[in-house]
Amino acid sequence: MKTKNIKGQYSVLEYVFLSLFIIAIIIGLMFFLTIWSSIQFGAESMKTEWDRALWLGQYVQNIPLLVKETGMFDDGKLTALASMGPSKACEYLESLAGPDFFMELRILDGNETQINCTWQNYPDCNYWEFCKNTGKKKKKFYTLPVNVYRRIGFKLQETTTGRTDIGILKAGVY
């Protein structure tokens, strides 16, 4: 009688454990699916940041405020913007492209020295930098080859003519 009772209790326990095991598997599956979705979502937002960095690189090459034509920056416009001071220039650019943005442009003129373009030294310069934030790490950016139209390209005896240089644009997000 006692052995039969114990056997009966084991059967009940077996049944309960089996049920709990099935429930645990289902909960585990739900947990896995939720984590998987979160990882996918995270990967998507990471991709979005890279997309934004790429977009910024393309965008600044296309806004007529800075360029002569698509893919060709105007050095006069860049220097005019830089001469407004870093905070105003950045304020202007952020109003166009959003926050946490930076851009640098270096002309490949064979000169190893990087010379920031200012009101005083224009056009004898080869570098512009906007929205520099020393407190933040440049997180995601693209480096793209671009053309730069130099309004004061050649100073001839009678006239001043333009020329086109090649430069490297670095644009991205902090």
Binding site: P64, L65, L66, D74, G76, K77, T79, A80, L81, S83, M84, Y92, S95, L96, W119, Y122, P123, R151, I152, K155, E158, T159, T160
Partner: peptide, 26 residues
Amino acid sequence: KIASDITAKRSLLVTGRLNPDTESTD
């Protein structure tokens, strides 16, 4: 506002670098 600010400054910037000689095409 940005375009006109940049254009105004650029005009001034370029003017300062052009040949002031009245004989020049600049």
